[in-house]
């Protein structure tokens, strides 16, 4: 059995305040390579919060998250940023592209932040990624010149920029029409099937969840169900 990419051990997240709110409670989870996972649950159940904890965007109140078998609980903010930059890619419901930059520049940003490739190689890889998602002709455009589906494809390309093994997607098709939803979902599925990535996506869409390999159902911040839907490719 290969090593777990992400492991959550008794992860709990409580928001402080006059009345503390428990977002995620005591969740244990192991995410392996090449998995295509759906996190489902009713609104406010803690799906996105769980995703943010797995993606090191948030710090658990108790428990710990391990990335590649290494505990992240005692990591500095810079070390957590380094893990996000190299091991994880994020796609959000809203594309979250920088509006003043061209889409090529947007895709190049994580590579430039990592600084391992020369500038020409960065641009070449960014254009290659855009080309592979059918956006080659739009590479000089800014996000506001693209449709919602196209923007979301750019966001996926950006998430793949540093070739991370895991893509975490928060409602990636939540604001798209059916055609775009199908396109973006197809891309995510191909990431697993063709590029060997692990994709963890929060979704409300049970039809899409049914097409994924594994479904994690969260209710009131707790793990209600975790089962395989289809065998991994």
């Amino acid at each position: 059995m290969s090593e777990a990419l992400i492991e959550a051990r008794a992860v709990t997240k409580v928001l402080g305040g006059i009345v503390p709110v428990t977002l995620v409670q005591d969740i244990d989870l192991i995410i392996m390579p090449r998995e295509f996972i759906a996190i489902t649950g009713p609104s406010g159940s803690g799906k996105s919060s769980l995703l943010y904890l797995l993606g090191l965007l948030d710090i658990p109140t108790s428990g710990e998250v391990l990335i590649d078998g290494i505990s992240t609980s005692r990591m500095t903010e810079d070390a957590r940023a380094e893990v996000r930059l190299t091991r994880l890619g994020f796609v959000f419901q809203f594309h979250f592209l920088l509006p003043e930059f061209s889409i090529t520049e947007n895709v190049a940003l994580p590579m430039r932040a990592l600084g391992k490739l020369p500038p020409r190689a960065i641009i070449a890889r960014a254009e290659e990624l855009l080309e592979s998602f059918g956006l080659g002709d739009h590479r000089h455009k800014t996000p506001d010149q693209l449709s919602g589906g196209q923007r979301q494809r750019v966001a996926v390309a950006r998430a793949l920029a540093n070739d991370p093994p895991v893509i975490l997607a928060d409602e990636p098709t939540g604001s798209l029409d059916s055609v775009s939803t199908a396109q973006v979902f197809g891309i995510l599925r191909d990431l697993v099937a063709l590029r060997g990535k692990t994709v963890v996506a929060v979704t409300h869409d049970l039809d899409l969840a049914a097409q994924m390999h594994r479904r994690i159902h969260v209710v009131d911040g707790r793990l209600a169900n975790d089962h395989a839907v289809t065998a991994p490719a």
Binding site: V83, R84, L85, F90, F96, L109, P110, A113, L114
Partner: peptide, 13 residues
């Protein structure tokens, strides 16, 4: 919002 995006991408403080 852009700052949040950059930080989520792995930009350091």
């Amino acid at each position: 919002r852009d700052i949040a995006i950059l930080k989520s991408l792995g930009f350091r403080d």
